[in-house]
């Protein structure tokens, strides 16, 4: 009997930017009080990736987040998506004002507080509000784990305790190269936004359904699975957390200045065949001067 996989996911509570849910202040900044917070879209993908390990290998899943007490409902949602066995909320006023490095410190300590040694830790690609993409790699670095970014697919060999990952990378200016790497566990994976789990057999699909059902039952009593840690309980270095542990200073946030339009736009009535002909003629003219390699 091989040891079951032990998998962790770190997630983030983010504002819901969809129309009908988001509110903005008159100065164009986000109205945080009026906007609901949800599981960030990239975090959701990381949760899906962990669920894949559960369906395929019956992995145990622990989900952790640093956030306010209200993040509990987000953890519940993440549990509904992944049938997580344990939920961790790291919440303390002392964590406030953290940049990515200080957040990574809390998450590292938090992951060490999770039950058992982790084989794989997943994070999202980036957050939709901060957009730095730093927290995952920094947490991996603090944990001293092998880090893989832009992962679009992975397969675990539970016997040899190794993993094969596919990464979407850019090589010498060529986009969308897929790099395949094998490594011994444990590893830290920042999942690519294009990740989609694949289940190829009926039995895997049935397992998927089974765990999803279990997930919906579990998430109804998500409190039972939740552990909350404050700054003392997490036993991180107080100097490295919160505002004191944050070397980043945001000097100013500015709107991206609009570039001046250099093109001359012309409005064409699509109903009028004569006008359409003009466009086609113009296109032909442009194409004739182009060299197509």
């Amino acid at each position: 009997m091989v040891d079951p996989l032990n998998v962790a996911v770190i997630v983030k509570l983010e504002p819901d930017f969809s129309e009908g849910n988001v509110s903005y202040n008159p100065d164009g900044t986000l109205n945080r009080a009026e906007t609901k917070n949800i599981l960030g879209p990239h975090s959701a993908i990381a949760v899906t990736a962990a669920f894949y390990a559960k369906v395929k290998h019956g992995a145990k899943i622990s989900i952790g987040t640093m956030g306010p007490p209200t993040a509990e409902s987000m953890l519940q949602h993440a549990q509904l998506m992944s049938d997580a066995d344990e939920l961790y909320l790291y919440s303390d006023r002392a964590f406030a004002g953290a940049d990515t490095l200080a957040t990574a410190e809390v998450l590292k300590s938090g992951i060490l507080k999770m039950q058992g040694k982790m084989d794989i830790v997943f994070s999202g690609h980036r957050a939709s509000d901060g957009e730095t993409g730093q927290t995952g790699p920094q947490t991996a670095w603090k944990l001293g784990m092998t880090f893989f970014g832009h992962v679009i697919d992975y397969e675990v060999n539970t016997e040899s305790r190794t993993i094969r990952v596919k990464r979407l990378v850019r090589l010498q200016g060529i986009y969308d190269v897929i790099e395949e790497i094998e490594a011994p566990l444990p590893v830290f994976i920042a999942i690519d936004p294009s990740y989609k789990p694949k289940f190829n057999t009926v039995s895997q699909r049935l397992a998927y359904e089974k765990y999803q059902k279990e997930a919906s039952q579990r998430s109804q009593n998500s409190k039972q699975y939740l552990k909350v840690f404050n700054a003392t309980q997490i036993e991180g270095d107080p100097k490295l957390i919160g505002i004191t542990g944050s070397p980043t200073i945001v000097y100013k946030v500015e709107r991206i200045p609009k570039g001046k339009a250099t093109r001359q736009a012309e409005v064409i009535d699509g109903q009028d065949r004569e006008q359409i002909r003009k466009i086609v003629a113009r296109m032909n003219q442009s194409l004739s001067t182009m060299v197509i390699k």
Partner: peptide, 16 residues
């Protein structure tokens, strides 16, 4: 432009 968008979003939210 920003104010137009803000109003549009606020209206959507209110109707919802």
């Amino acid at each position: 432009k920003e104010e137009q968008m803000r109003v549009r979003f606020a209206v959507t939210k209110m109707i919802k």
